[in-house]
Design a protein around this nucleic acid. Sequence first.
RNA 1: GGGGCAUUAGCUUAAUGGAUAGAGUUGCGGCUUCCGACGCCGUAGGUACGGGUUCGAUUCCCGUAUGCCCUACCA
Length: 572
Amino acid sequence: MINYKEEIAKILADADIGLSFDEIKEIVEVPSDSKMGDYAFPCFKLAKVLRKAPPMIAKDIAEKITGKDLFEKVESVNAYVNMYISKQNFIEHVVPEIVNAGDSFGRSNIGEGRPLIVEYSSPNICKPFHIGHIRSTVIGNALYKIYDAIGYDVIRINHLGDYGTQFGKMIVAYRLWGNKEDVEREPIKTLLSYYTKFHVEVETHPELDDEARKVFVKLEAGEKEEVELWQWFREMSLKEFNRVYDMLDIKFDSYNGESFYSDKMPRIVNELKEKGLLQESQGAQVVDLSEYGMPPALVTKSDGSSLYLTRDIAAAVYRKETYNFVKNIYVVASQQNLHFQQWFKVVELLGYEWAKDCVHVPFGMVSLEDGTMSTRHGRVVFLEDVLNKAVDQTREIVKEKGVNTENLEETAKAVGIGAVIFQELSNNRIKDYVFSWDRVLNFEGETGPYVQYTHARACSVLRNAGEELVAKACEFKDIDFSYLTGDAAYTLVKLMYELPDVIVDAAEKYEPSVVTRHLIDIAQGFNRFYHEEHILVDNEAEKLAKVALVKAAKNVIANGLALLGMKAPEKM
RNA sequence: GGGGCAUUAGCUUAAUGGAUAGAGUUGCGGCUUCCGACGCCGUAGGUACGGGUUCGAUUCCCGUAUGCCCUACCA
Protein backbone atom coordinates (compact mmCIF):
# COMPACT_ATOMS: atom_id res chain seq x y z
CA MET A 1 0.00 0.00 0.00
CA ILE A 2 1.35 3.40 -0.93
CA ASN A 3 2.10 5.61 2.03
CA TYR A 4 0.82 8.96 0.83
CA LYS A 5 2.24 10.90 3.73
CA GLU A 6 5.69 9.65 2.86
CA GLU A 7 5.21 10.36 -0.84
CA ILE A 8 4.23 13.91 0.01
CA ALA A 9 7.15 14.31 2.39
CA LYS A 10 9.44 13.14 -0.42
CA ILE A 11 8.03 15.67 -2.85
CA LEU A 12 8.35 18.46 -0.30
CA ALA A 13 11.87 17.43 0.63
CA ASP A 14 12.84 17.40 -3.05
CA ALA A 15 11.33 20.85 -3.42
CA ASP A 16 14.00 21.98 -1.01
CA ILE A 17 11.80 23.90 1.39
CA GLY A 18 14.35 23.94 4.18
CA LEU A 19 13.35 20.92 6.26
CA SER A 20 14.42 17.28 6.16
CA PHE A 21 12.23 14.42 5.01
CA ASP A 22 11.68 13.23 8.57
CA GLU A 23 10.80 16.70 9.85
CA ILE A 24 8.33 17.18 7.03
CA LYS A 25 6.75 13.80 7.61
CA GLU A 26 6.01 14.82 11.19
CA ILE A 27 4.31 18.02 10.09
CA VAL A 28 2.17 16.72 7.21
CA GLU A 29 -1.35 16.25 8.50
CA VAL A 30 -4.83 15.28 7.44
CA PRO A 31 -7.06 18.38 7.55
CA SER A 32 -9.96 18.33 9.97
CA ASP A 33 -12.31 19.09 7.10
CA SER A 34 -11.92 17.21 3.82
CA LYS A 35 -12.97 20.33 1.93
CA MET A 36 -9.49 21.60 2.74
CA GLY A 37 -7.79 18.81 0.90
CA ASP A 38 -6.59 15.29 1.58
CA TYR A 39 -3.31 16.36 3.14
CA ALA A 40 -2.06 19.67 4.43
CA PHE A 41 1.25 21.21 5.33
CA PRO A 42 1.12 24.00 7.90
CA CYS A 43 3.97 26.48 7.42
CA PHE A 44 4.13 28.08 10.86
CA LYS A 45 7.26 26.22 11.88
CA LEU A 46 9.06 27.30 8.73
CA ALA A 47 8.34 30.94 9.46
CA LYS A 48 11.05 31.14 12.08
CA VAL A 49 13.66 29.42 9.94
CA LEU A 50 12.93 31.38 6.78
CA ARG A 51 12.02 34.66 8.53
CA LYS A 52 9.02 35.04 6.29
CA ALA A 53 5.30 35.27 6.87
CA PRO A 54 3.70 31.78 6.88
CA PRO A 55 1.12 32.57 4.15
CA MET A 56 3.94 33.67 1.83
CA ILE A 57 5.81 30.44 2.49
CA ALA A 58 2.67 28.42 1.85
CA LYS A 59 2.16 30.21 -1.43
CA ASP A 60 5.74 29.55 -2.55
CA ILE A 61 5.58 25.87 -1.64
CA ALA A 62 2.22 25.45 -3.34
CA GLU A 63 3.68 26.88 -6.54
CA LYS A 64 6.73 24.64 -6.35
CA ILE A 65 4.81 21.39 -6.04
CA THR A 66 1.86 22.15 -8.27
CA GLY A 67 1.74 19.83 -11.23
CA LYS A 68 3.27 16.78 -9.56
CA ASP A 69 1.57 13.56 -10.66
CA LEU A 70 0.40 12.71 -7.18
CA PHE A 71 -1.82 15.77 -6.96
CA GLU A 72 -5.01 16.77 -8.59
CA LYS A 73 -4.78 20.22 -7.08
CA VAL A 74 -2.52 22.15 -4.73
CA GLU A 75 -3.49 25.43 -3.15
CA SER A 76 -2.36 27.67 -0.35
CA VAL A 77 -4.91 28.89 2.14
CA ASN A 78 -3.42 31.26 4.69
CA ALA A 79 -0.50 29.43 6.24
CA TYR A 80 -1.49 26.04 4.87
CA VAL A 81 -0.56 24.20 1.73
CA ASN A 82 -3.58 22.10 0.95
CA MET A 83 -3.01 19.11 -1.27
CA TYR A 84 -5.72 17.21 -3.10
CA ILE A 85 -4.52 13.88 -4.33
CA SER A 86 -5.79 12.35 -7.52
CA LYS A 87 -8.98 10.62 -6.45
CA GLN A 88 -9.13 8.07 -9.18
CA ASN A 89 -5.53 6.95 -8.76
CA PHE A 90 -6.09 6.69 -5.04
CA ILE A 91 -9.23 4.59 -5.32
CA GLU A 92 -7.79 2.44 -8.09
CA HIS A 93 -4.90 1.63 -5.84
CA VAL A 94 -6.63 1.23 -2.46
CA VAL A 95 -9.83 -0.70 -3.21
CA PRO A 96 -8.17 -3.69 -4.91
CA GLU A 97 -5.55 -3.86 -2.19
CA ILE A 98 -8.16 -4.03 0.53
CA VAL A 99 -10.15 -6.73 -1.23
CA ASN A 100 -7.08 -8.79 -2.09
CA ALA A 101 -5.65 -8.54 1.41
CA GLY A 102 -8.85 -10.06 2.86
CA ASP A 103 -8.47 -10.91 6.56
CA SER A 104 -5.01 -9.47 6.65
CA PHE A 105 -5.96 -5.95 5.64
CA GLY A 106 -4.89 -3.71 8.49
CA ARG A 107 -2.21 -6.08 9.72
CA SER A 108 1.45 -5.22 9.72
CA ASN A 109 4.70 -6.66 11.00
CA ILE A 110 6.01 -3.94 13.27
CA GLY A 111 6.36 -6.46 16.10
CA GLU A 112 8.46 -8.84 13.99
CA GLY A 113 7.27 -11.78 16.04
CA ARG A 114 8.78 -10.55 19.28
CA PRO A 115 7.16 -11.69 22.53
CA LEU A 116 4.83 -9.34 24.36
CA ILE A 117 2.75 -10.05 27.44
CA VAL A 118 -0.72 -8.78 28.18
CA GLU A 119 -2.01 -9.49 31.66
CA TYR A 120 -5.74 -8.96 31.94
CA SER A 121 -9.01 -10.02 33.55
CA SER A 122 -7.39 -11.51 36.70
CA PRO A 123 -10.47 -12.06 38.89
CA ASN A 124 -10.30 -13.32 42.47
CA ILE A 125 -11.42 -16.91 42.86
CA CYS A 126 -14.44 -17.59 45.09
CA LYS A 127 -15.67 -14.10 44.29
CA PRO A 128 -18.25 -13.10 41.71
CA PHE A 129 -17.20 -12.13 38.22
CA HIS A 130 -19.04 -8.86 38.10
CA ILE A 131 -19.52 -5.91 35.82
CA GLY A 132 -16.39 -4.29 37.24
CA HIS A 133 -14.30 -7.08 35.73
CA ILE A 134 -15.50 -6.43 32.22
CA ARG A 135 -13.08 -3.59 31.70
CA SER A 136 -9.80 -5.39 32.22
CA THR A 137 -11.17 -8.46 30.44
CA VAL A 138 -12.43 -6.77 27.31
CA ILE A 139 -9.78 -4.05 27.01
CA GLY A 140 -7.04 -6.63 27.56
CA ASN A 141 -8.49 -8.93 24.93
CA ALA A 142 -8.69 -6.09 22.41
CA LEU A 143 -5.09 -5.12 23.14
CA TYR A 144 -4.09 -8.72 22.55
CA LYS A 145 -5.82 -8.66 19.16
CA ILE A 146 -4.35 -5.29 18.27
CA TYR A 147 -0.78 -6.23 19.16
CA ASP A 148 -1.23 -9.55 17.41
CA ALA A 149 -2.34 -7.62 14.32
CA ILE A 150 0.83 -5.58 14.25
CA GLY A 151 2.99 -8.66 14.42
CA TYR A 152 3.85 -9.32 18.06
CA ASP A 153 3.81 -12.78 19.56
CA VAL A 154 1.36 -12.05 22.35
CA ILE A 155 1.19 -14.10 25.54
CA ARG A 156 -2.12 -13.72 27.36
CA ILE A 157 -1.97 -14.10 31.12
CA ASN A 158 -4.85 -14.31 33.55
CA HIS A 159 -3.24 -13.47 36.87
CA LEU A 160 -5.86 -15.07 39.09
CA GLY A 161 -6.31 -13.78 42.63
CA ASP A 162 -5.95 -17.22 44.17
CA TYR A 163 -3.81 -16.57 47.22
CA GLY A 164 -4.07 -14.86 50.56
CA THR A 165 -5.51 -15.02 54.05
CA GLN A 166 -9.06 -14.89 52.76
CA PHE A 167 -8.70 -18.52 51.74
CA GLY A 168 -8.04 -19.41 55.36
CA LYS A 169 -11.39 -17.83 56.15
CA MET A 170 -13.00 -19.58 53.22
CA ILE A 171 -11.82 -23.00 54.37
CA VAL A 172 -12.94 -22.39 57.95
CA ALA A 173 -16.35 -21.21 56.73
CA TYR A 174 -16.76 -24.20 54.44
CA ARG A 175 -15.88 -26.64 57.22
CA LEU A 176 -18.45 -25.05 59.50
CA TRP A 177 -21.37 -24.48 57.15
CA GLY A 178 -20.41 -25.90 53.79
CA ASN A 179 -22.14 -28.41 51.60
CA LYS A 180 -20.42 -30.04 48.65
CA GLU A 181 -23.50 -30.38 46.43
CA ASP A 182 -24.46 -26.75 46.85
CA VAL A 183 -20.98 -25.64 45.90
CA GLU A 184 -20.90 -27.83 42.84
CA ARG A 185 -24.26 -26.61 41.68
CA GLU A 186 -23.51 -22.92 42.10
CA PRO A 187 -19.90 -22.52 43.13
CA ILE A 188 -19.35 -18.83 43.50
CA LYS A 189 -22.70 -17.74 44.86
CA THR A 190 -22.51 -20.54 47.43
CA LEU A 191 -18.89 -19.96 48.42
CA LEU A 192 -19.58 -16.26 48.67
CA SER A 193 -22.48 -16.88 51.03
CA TYR A 194 -20.13 -18.80 53.36
CA TYR A 195 -17.65 -15.98 53.20
CA THR A 196 -20.32 -13.42 54.01
CA LYS A 197 -21.54 -15.57 56.88
CA PHE A 198 -17.99 -15.75 58.18
CA HIS A 199 -17.83 -11.98 58.35
CA VAL A 200 -21.11 -11.82 60.22
CA GLU A 201 -20.15 -14.56 62.68
CA VAL A 202 -16.70 -13.17 63.35
CA GLU A 203 -18.33 -10.12 64.96
CA THR A 204 -19.54 -12.26 67.83
CA HIS A 205 -16.90 -15.01 67.60
CA PRO A 206 -13.55 -13.29 67.12
CA GLU A 207 -11.76 -16.61 67.59
CA LEU A 208 -12.79 -17.47 64.03
CA ASP A 209 -10.18 -15.04 62.76
CA ASP A 210 -7.40 -16.82 64.65
CA GLU A 211 -8.62 -20.13 63.30
CA ALA A 212 -8.55 -18.71 59.75
CA ARG A 213 -5.01 -17.48 60.19
CA LYS A 214 -3.89 -20.93 61.39
CA VAL A 215 -5.56 -22.61 58.47
CA PHE A 216 -3.87 -20.27 56.03
CA VAL A 217 -0.48 -21.12 57.54
CA LYS A 218 -1.32 -24.79 56.97
CA LEU A 219 -2.32 -24.02 53.40
CA GLU A 220 0.95 -22.22 52.76
CA ALA A 221 2.87 -25.07 54.33
CA GLY A 222 1.21 -27.40 51.84
CA GLU A 223 -0.88 -29.47 54.23
CA LYS A 224 -2.80 -31.96 52.14
CA GLU A 225 -6.34 -31.33 53.32
CA GLU A 226 -6.13 -27.58 53.06
CA VAL A 227 -4.44 -27.64 49.69
CA GLU A 228 -7.04 -30.02 48.31
CA LEU A 229 -9.89 -27.80 49.44
CA TRP A 230 -8.21 -24.73 48.03
CA GLN A 231 -7.61 -26.47 44.72
CA TRP A 232 -11.21 -27.49 44.57
CA PHE A 233 -12.37 -23.92 45.21
CA ARG A 234 -10.04 -22.78 42.46
CA GLU A 235 -11.32 -25.37 39.98
CA MET A 236 -14.94 -24.61 40.77
CA SER A 237 -14.35 -20.89 40.34
CA LEU A 238 -12.51 -21.30 37.06
CA LYS A 239 -15.31 -23.46 35.75
CA GLU A 240 -17.66 -20.59 36.35
CA PHE A 241 -15.30 -17.95 34.97
CA ASN A 242 -14.82 -20.03 31.86
CA ARG A 243 -18.52 -19.88 31.18
CA VAL A 244 -18.17 -16.11 30.86
CA TYR A 245 -14.93 -16.32 28.89
CA ASP A 246 -16.60 -18.72 26.47
CA MET A 247 -19.47 -16.32 25.96
CA LEU A 248 -17.01 -13.53 25.26
CA ASP A 249 -14.83 -15.85 23.20
CA ILE A 250 -11.80 -14.90 25.24
CA LYS A 251 -8.87 -17.21 25.86
CA PHE A 252 -5.64 -17.18 27.82
CA ASP A 253 -2.26 -18.81 27.44
CA SER A 254 -1.66 -18.95 31.17
CA TYR A 255 -3.74 -18.96 34.33
CA ASN A 256 -0.74 -18.66 36.63
CA GLY A 257 -2.11 -16.54 39.42
CA GLU A 258 -0.72 -15.23 42.66
CA SER A 259 -0.29 -18.64 44.23
CA PHE A 260 2.03 -19.69 41.41
CA TYR A 261 4.61 -17.16 42.58
CA SER A 262 4.47 -17.89 46.31
CA ASP A 263 7.67 -19.93 46.16
CA LYS A 264 9.40 -17.40 43.92
CA MET A 265 9.33 -14.55 46.38
CA PRO A 266 12.15 -15.42 48.80
CA ARG A 267 14.59 -15.03 45.95
CA ILE A 268 13.40 -11.50 45.34
CA VAL A 269 13.56 -10.61 49.01
CA ASN A 270 17.14 -11.94 49.14
CA GLU A 271 18.08 -10.00 46.08
CA LEU A 272 16.69 -6.82 47.58
CA LYS A 273 18.66 -7.53 50.72
CA GLU A 274 21.90 -8.21 48.84
CA LYS A 275 21.61 -5.06 46.84
CA GLY A 276 21.09 -3.09 50.03
CA LEU A 277 17.63 -1.85 49.13
CA LEU A 278 15.76 -3.19 52.15
CA GLN A 279 15.24 -1.29 55.38
CA GLU A 280 13.38 -2.18 58.52
CA SER A 281 10.55 0.10 59.45
CA GLN A 282 8.03 -0.54 62.21
CA GLY A 283 8.89 -4.23 62.05
CA ALA A 284 8.31 -4.49 58.30
CA GLN A 285 10.80 -4.66 55.46
CA VAL A 286 10.50 -1.76 53.04
CA VAL A 287 12.25 -0.12 50.12
CA ASP A 288 12.57 3.60 50.71
CA LEU A 289 11.31 5.54 47.70
CA SER A 290 11.14 9.01 49.23
CA GLU A 291 13.84 10.11 46.81
CA TYR A 292 11.34 9.50 44.03
CA GLY A 293 8.44 11.17 45.77
CA MET A 294 6.68 7.96 46.66
CA PRO A 295 5.79 6.30 49.94
CA PRO A 296 7.95 3.30 50.89
CA ALA A 297 7.30 0.01 49.11
CA LEU A 298 6.28 -2.61 51.63
CA VAL A 299 8.03 -5.88 50.79
CA THR A 300 7.54 -8.00 53.88
CA LYS A 301 4.94 -7.59 56.60
CA SER A 302 5.96 -7.32 60.25
CA ASP A 303 4.82 -10.92 60.76
CA GLY A 304 7.21 -12.01 58.02
CA SER A 305 4.65 -12.81 55.33
CA SER A 306 4.82 -11.30 51.90
CA LEU A 307 2.71 -8.78 50.05
CA TYR A 308 1.41 -8.46 46.54
CA LEU A 309 4.08 -5.97 45.63
CA THR A 310 6.69 -8.65 46.19
CA ARG A 311 4.56 -11.11 44.29
CA ASP A 312 4.27 -8.78 41.32
CA ILE A 313 8.02 -8.34 41.20
CA ALA A 314 8.56 -12.10 41.41
CA ALA A 315 6.01 -12.57 38.63
CA ALA A 316 7.71 -9.99 36.39
CA VAL A 317 11.12 -11.59 36.89
CA TYR A 318 9.66 -15.01 36.14
CA ARG A 319 8.01 -13.70 32.98
CA LYS A 320 11.18 -12.04 31.76
CA GLU A 321 13.07 -15.30 32.27
CA THR A 322 10.34 -17.46 30.78
CA TYR A 323 9.15 -15.39 27.83
CA ASN A 324 11.87 -12.76 27.39
CA PHE A 325 9.21 -10.18 26.65
CA VAL A 326 9.96 -6.91 24.86
CA LYS A 327 6.93 -5.44 26.55
CA ASN A 328 4.97 -6.48 29.61
CA ILE A 329 1.52 -4.90 29.78
CA TYR A 330 -0.78 -4.86 32.82
CA VAL A 331 -4.41 -4.00 32.22
CA VAL A 332 -5.36 -3.09 35.78
CA ALA A 333 -7.63 -0.41 37.32
CA SER A 334 -6.23 3.09 37.83
CA GLN A 335 -6.66 2.68 41.58
CA GLN A 336 -3.41 0.80 41.47
CA ASN A 337 -1.37 3.52 39.79
CA LEU A 338 0.82 4.06 42.81
CA HIS A 339 1.36 0.36 43.35
CA PHE A 340 2.67 -0.07 39.80
CA GLN A 341 4.84 3.03 39.95
CA GLN A 342 6.35 1.71 43.16
CA TRP A 343 7.19 -1.75 42.02
CA PHE A 344 8.37 -0.66 38.57
CA LYS A 345 10.78 1.63 40.42
CA VAL A 346 11.93 -1.20 42.68
CA VAL A 347 12.62 -3.39 39.65
CA GLU A 348 14.62 -0.54 38.18
CA LEU A 349 16.58 -0.16 41.42
CA LEU A 350 17.31 -3.86 41.31
CA GLY A 351 19.18 -3.07 38.14
CA TYR A 352 16.88 -4.75 35.64
CA GLU A 353 16.96 -2.69 32.48
CA TRP A 354 13.67 -4.23 31.35
CA ALA A 355 11.83 -2.24 34.03
CA LYS A 356 11.21 0.30 31.26
CA ASP A 357 9.36 -2.35 29.26
CA CYS A 358 6.73 -2.83 31.95
CA VAL A 359 3.60 -0.84 31.27
CA HIS A 360 0.57 -0.27 33.45
CA VAL A 361 -2.52 0.36 31.33
CA PRO A 362 -5.00 1.87 33.78
CA PHE A 363 -8.72 2.28 33.38
CA GLY A 364 -11.44 4.11 35.33
CA MET A 365 -13.94 2.75 37.82
CA VAL A 366 -17.34 1.28 37.21
CA SER A 367 -19.88 2.18 39.83
CA LEU A 368 -23.58 1.45 40.22
CA GLU A 369 -26.35 3.99 40.47
CA ASP A 370 -26.64 3.34 44.20
CA GLY A 371 -22.92 3.61 44.82
CA THR A 372 -19.77 1.63 44.34
CA MET A 373 -19.96 -2.08 43.94
CA SER A 374 -19.83 -4.11 47.12
CA THR A 375 -20.18 -7.85 47.15
CA ARG A 376 -20.54 -7.83 50.93
CA HIS A 377 -23.54 -5.52 50.75
CA GLY A 378 -25.08 -7.33 47.83
CA ARG A 379 -24.53 -4.34 45.56
CA VAL A 380 -23.23 -6.22 42.59
CA VAL A 381 -24.18 -6.82 38.96
CA PHE A 382 -22.94 -10.13 37.59
CA LEU A 383 -21.31 -9.92 34.19
CA GLU A 384 -22.95 -13.16 33.14
CA ASP A 385 -26.37 -11.65 33.86
CA VAL A 386 -25.55 -8.62 31.74
CA LEU A 387 -24.45 -10.80 28.83
CA ASN A 388 -27.48 -13.06 29.13
CA LYS A 389 -29.87 -10.14 29.26
CA ALA A 390 -28.28 -8.58 26.19
CA VAL A 391 -28.61 -11.89 24.33
CA ASP A 392 -32.23 -12.30 25.48
CA GLN A 393 -33.14 -8.87 24.23
CA THR A 394 -31.44 -9.52 20.92
CA ARG A 395 -33.20 -12.84 20.53
CA GLU A 396 -36.57 -11.14 20.99
CA ILE A 397 -35.76 -8.58 18.34
CA VAL A 398 -34.59 -11.19 15.84
CA LYS A 399 -37.74 -13.27 16.46
CA GLU A 400 -39.97 -10.26 16.11
CA LYS A 401 -38.41 -9.14 12.86
CA GLY A 402 -38.35 -12.67 11.53
CA VAL A 403 -34.98 -12.24 9.89
CA ASN A 404 -32.39 -14.94 9.99
CA THR A 405 -34.35 -17.23 12.28
CA GLU A 406 -32.33 -20.21 11.08
CA ASN A 407 -29.33 -18.88 13.00
CA LEU A 408 -31.34 -17.37 15.82
CA GLU A 409 -29.08 -18.35 18.72
CA GLU A 410 -25.87 -17.60 16.94
CA THR A 411 -27.03 -14.18 15.81
CA ALA A 412 -28.50 -13.27 19.17
CA LYS A 413 -25.21 -14.11 20.85
CA ALA A 414 -23.04 -12.32 18.31
CA VAL A 415 -25.08 -9.15 18.47
CA GLY A 416 -26.06 -9.10 22.15
CA ILE A 417 -22.60 -9.82 23.46
CA GLY A 418 -21.06 -7.67 20.77
CA ALA A 419 -23.15 -4.75 21.98
CA VAL A 420 -21.75 -5.11 25.49
CA ILE A 421 -18.16 -5.38 24.27
CA PHE A 422 -18.48 -2.47 21.88
CA GLN A 423 -20.00 -0.28 24.56
CA GLU A 424 -17.10 -1.05 26.85
CA LEU A 425 -14.55 -0.19 24.17
CA SER A 426 -16.24 2.99 22.96
CA ASN A 427 -14.74 5.57 25.29
CA ASN A 428 -11.31 6.44 26.55
CA ARG A 429 -10.51 3.77 29.08
CA ILE A 430 -9.37 6.20 31.79
CA LYS A 431 -12.90 7.53 32.35
CA ASP A 432 -15.05 6.37 35.23
CA TYR A 433 -18.62 5.44 34.44
CA VAL A 434 -21.82 4.45 36.12
CA PHE A 435 -23.25 1.15 34.96
CA SER A 436 -26.73 1.46 33.52
CA TRP A 437 -28.95 -1.19 31.97
CA ASP A 438 -30.42 1.36 29.57
CA ARG A 439 -27.01 2.22 28.31
CA VAL A 440 -25.75 -1.31 27.86
CA LEU A 441 -28.96 -2.50 26.20
CA ASN A 442 -29.23 0.45 23.83
CA PHE A 443 -28.73 -0.66 20.25
CA GLU A 444 -29.14 2.62 18.43
CA GLY A 445 -26.67 5.26 17.38
CA GLU A 446 -22.96 4.68 17.91
CA THR A 447 -23.28 1.10 19.06
CA GLY A 448 -22.01 -2.36 18.21
CA PRO A 449 -25.25 -3.41 16.53
CA TYR A 450 -25.04 -0.33 14.31
CA VAL A 451 -21.65 -1.39 13.00
CA GLN A 452 -22.65 -5.05 12.73
CA TYR A 453 -25.83 -4.03 10.97
CA THR A 454 -23.82 -2.04 8.48
CA HIS A 455 -21.71 -5.11 7.83
CA ALA A 456 -24.83 -7.23 7.35
CA ARG A 457 -26.22 -4.60 5.01
CA ALA A 458 -23.08 -4.76 2.89
CA CYS A 459 -23.35 -8.55 2.85
CA SER A 460 -26.93 -8.29 1.73
CA VAL A 461 -26.04 -6.03 -1.16
CA LEU A 462 -23.37 -8.48 -2.23
CA ARG A 463 -25.86 -11.35 -2.04
CA ASN A 464 -28.26 -9.43 -4.19
CA ALA A 465 -25.52 -8.64 -6.66
CA GLY A 466 -24.93 -12.35 -7.11
CA GLU A 467 -21.78 -14.42 -6.76
CA GLU A 468 -20.85 -14.12 -10.38
CA LEU A 469 -20.90 -10.37 -10.43
CA VAL A 470 -18.99 -10.12 -7.17
CA ALA A 471 -16.35 -12.50 -8.48
CA LYS A 472 -16.06 -10.45 -11.63
CA ALA A 473 -15.75 -7.21 -9.69
CA CYS A 474 -13.01 -8.72 -7.56
CA GLU A 475 -10.86 -9.45 -10.58
CA PHE A 476 -10.44 -5.71 -11.03
CA LYS A 477 -10.08 -6.00 -14.76
CA ASP A 478 -11.38 -3.05 -16.70
CA ILE A 479 -13.14 -1.55 -13.74
CA ASP A 480 -13.92 2.09 -14.18
CA PHE A 481 -13.10 3.59 -10.82
CA SER A 482 -14.25 7.01 -11.90
CA TYR A 483 -17.68 5.89 -10.68
CA LEU A 484 -16.30 6.01 -7.15
CA THR A 485 -14.99 9.54 -7.16
CA GLY A 486 -18.20 10.94 -5.69
CA ASP A 487 -17.90 12.50 -2.27
CA ALA A 488 -19.49 9.69 -0.27
CA ALA A 489 -17.55 6.90 -1.97
CA TYR A 490 -14.25 8.73 -1.88
CA THR A 491 -14.63 9.60 1.82
CA LEU A 492 -15.34 5.95 2.56
CA VAL A 493 -12.23 4.80 0.71
CA LYS A 494 -10.10 7.32 2.58
CA LEU A 495 -11.41 6.11 5.93
CA MET A 496 -10.72 2.50 5.04
CA TYR A 497 -7.22 3.39 3.87
CA GLU A 498 -6.50 4.79 7.33
CA LEU A 499 -7.27 1.57 9.21
CA PRO A 500 -3.68 0.23 9.36
CA ASP A 501 -2.44 3.53 10.83
CA VAL A 502 -5.33 3.58 13.25
CA ILE A 503 -4.40 0.13 14.54
CA VAL A 504 -0.81 1.22 15.14
CA ASP A 505 -2.05 4.34 16.88
CA ALA A 506 -4.33 2.26 19.12
CA ALA A 507 -1.41 0.00 20.02
CA GLU A 508 0.89 2.91 20.85
CA LYS A 509 -1.74 4.48 23.07
CA TYR A 510 -2.93 1.16 24.53
CA GLU A 511 -6.35 2.47 23.61
CA PRO A 512 -8.79 0.15 21.79
CA SER A 513 -11.39 2.93 21.58
CA VAL A 514 -9.29 4.45 18.81
CA VAL A 515 -10.27 1.45 16.68
CA THR A 516 -13.87 1.50 17.89
CA ARG A 517 -14.28 5.16 16.95
CA HIS A 518 -12.75 4.69 13.56
CA LEU A 519 -15.02 1.75 12.93
CA ILE A 520 -18.02 3.97 13.63
CA ASP A 521 -16.66 6.50 11.12
CA ILE A 522 -16.31 3.79 8.49
CA ALA A 523 -19.83 2.50 9.15
CA GLN A 524 -21.18 6.04 8.87
CA GLY A 525 -19.22 6.50 5.67
CA PHE A 526 -20.70 3.33 4.23
CA ASN A 527 -24.25 4.21 5.24
CA ARG A 528 -23.92 7.63 3.68
CA PHE A 529 -22.72 6.08 0.43
CA TYR A 530 -25.48 3.49 0.60
CA HIS A 531 -28.16 6.16 0.87
CA GLU A 532 -26.74 8.69 -1.50
CA GLU A 533 -26.04 6.34 -4.35
CA HIS A 534 -27.82 3.30 -5.60
CA ILE A 535 -25.38 0.42 -5.84
CA LEU A 536 -27.02 -2.24 -7.99
CA VAL A 537 -27.67 0.01 -10.95
CA ASP A 538 -28.34 -1.09 -14.55
CA ASN A 539 -25.08 0.27 -15.90
CA GLU A 540 -22.77 -2.76 -15.66
CA ALA A 541 -19.53 -0.79 -15.42
CA GLU A 542 -20.84 1.39 -12.63
CA LYS A 543 -22.27 -1.59 -10.81
CA LEU A 544 -18.95 -3.46 -10.90
CA ALA A 545 -17.06 -0.54 -9.43
CA LYS A 546 -19.60 -0.06 -6.67
CA VAL A 547 -19.79 -3.75 -5.83
CA ALA A 548 -16.01 -3.77 -5.47
CA LEU A 549 -16.29 -0.90 -3.01
CA VAL A 550 -18.99 -2.69 -1.00
CA LYS A 551 -16.84 -5.80 -0.88
CA ALA A 552 -13.94 -3.74 0.43
CA ALA A 553 -16.13 -2.08 3.07
CA LYS A 554 -17.51 -5.41 4.26
CA ASN A 555 -13.95 -6.67 4.55
CA VAL A 556 -12.71 -3.69 6.53
CA ILE A 557 -15.64 -3.67 8.95
CA ALA A 558 -15.29 -7.40 9.60
CA ASN A 559 -11.58 -6.99 10.30
CA GLY A 560 -12.22 -4.06 12.60
CA LEU A 561 -14.86 -5.93 14.58
CA ALA A 562 -12.51 -8.88 14.94
CA LEU A 563 -9.93 -6.61 16.52
CA LEU A 564 -12.41 -5.71 19.22
CA GLY A 565 -13.25 -9.35 19.79
CA MET A 566 -16.60 -9.16 18.02
CA LYS A 567 -18.33 -11.29 15.42
CA ALA A 568 -19.58 -9.92 12.12
CA PRO A 569 -22.81 -11.76 11.22
CA GLU A 570 -23.77 -11.80 7.54
CA LYS A 571 -27.44 -11.51 8.38
CA MET A 572 -29.13 -10.07 11.40
C1' G B 1 -2.58 17.09 55.12
C1' G B 2 0.19 15.05 50.56
C1' G B 3 -0.21 12.87 45.59
C1' G B 4 -2.77 11.13 41.04
C1' C B 5 -6.79 11.32 37.50
C1' A B 6 -10.95 13.67 35.62
C1' U B 7 -14.22 18.13 34.17
C1' U B 8 -16.22 19.64 26.54
C1' A B 9 -23.88 20.67 23.96
C1' G B 10 -29.78 18.90 28.34
C1' C B 11 -27.46 13.63 28.44
C1' U B 12 -23.23 10.02 26.60
C1' U B 13 -18.80 11.67 24.41
C1' A B 14 -14.30 12.82 20.27
C1' A B 15 -10.29 15.92 18.95
C1' U B 16 -0.66 14.07 17.20
C1' G B 17 -0.26 22.49 20.08
C1' G B 18 -3.17 24.12 14.21
C1' A B 19 -7.91 26.10 10.00
C1' U B 20 -15.14 27.02 11.39
C1' A B 21 -14.28 22.06 18.52
C1' G B 22 -16.47 16.51 15.55
C1' A B 23 -20.18 12.62 16.66
C1' G B 24 -24.25 10.00 19.07
C1' U B 25 -28.66 10.82 21.89
C1' U B 26 -32.83 14.15 22.88
C1' G B 27 -36.13 18.13 20.32
C1' C B 28 -37.91 19.99 15.58
C1' G B 29 -38.34 19.38 9.86
C1' G B 30 -37.57 16.18 5.68
C1' C B 31 -36.05 11.49 3.00
C1' U B 32 -35.62 6.08 2.55
C1' U B 33 -38.89 -0.91 -0.63
C1' C B 34 -30.27 -2.78 -2.75
C1' C B 35 -31.64 -5.50 5.47
C1' G B 36 -35.75 -5.83 7.69
C1' A B 37 -33.12 -3.80 15.04
C1' C B 38 -32.42 0.40 10.76
C1' G B 39 -30.54 4.22 8.32
C1' C B 40 -29.65 8.99 5.69
C1' C B 41 -30.12 14.52 5.21
C1' G B 42 -31.16 19.26 7.51
C1' U B 43 -31.76 22.27 12.12
C1' A B 44 -30.91 23.63 17.23
C1' G B 45 -27.13 23.29 21.17
C1' G B 46 -20.62 23.24 24.02
C1' U B 47 -14.52 23.73 25.95
C1' A B 48 -15.97 24.47 34.79
C1' C B 49 -13.52 29.25 36.43
C1' G B 50 -9.04 32.80 36.65
C1' G B 51 -4.17 33.72 35.00
C1' G B 52 0.27 32.45 31.97
C1' U B 53 3.49 30.37 27.75
C1' U B 54 2.76 30.51 22.18
C1' C B 55 2.05 33.25 15.70
C1' G B 56 -1.86 29.77 17.51
C1' A B 57 -4.37 26.30 23.66
C1' U B 58 -9.90 21.63 24.59
C1' U B 59 -4.62 20.15 24.41
C1' C B 60 1.22 22.70 27.81
C1' C B 61 2.24 25.50 32.84
C1' C B 62 0.29 27.88 37.60
C1' G B 63 -3.94 28.71 40.72
C1' U B 64 -9.45 27.99 42.12
C1' A B 65 -13.83 24.89 42.20
C1' U B 66 -16.22 20.11 41.84
C1' G B 67 -15.97 14.67 41.57
C1' C B 68 -13.34 10.02 41.94
C1' C B 69 -8.97 7.24 43.41
C1' C B 70 -4.44 6.42 46.26
C1' U B 71 -1.77 7.71 50.66
C1' A B 72 2.73 0.84 54.60
C1' C B 73 1.35 -4.40 56.78
C1' C B 74 -5.90 -6.46 51.54
C1' A B 75 -5.28 -7.14 46.29
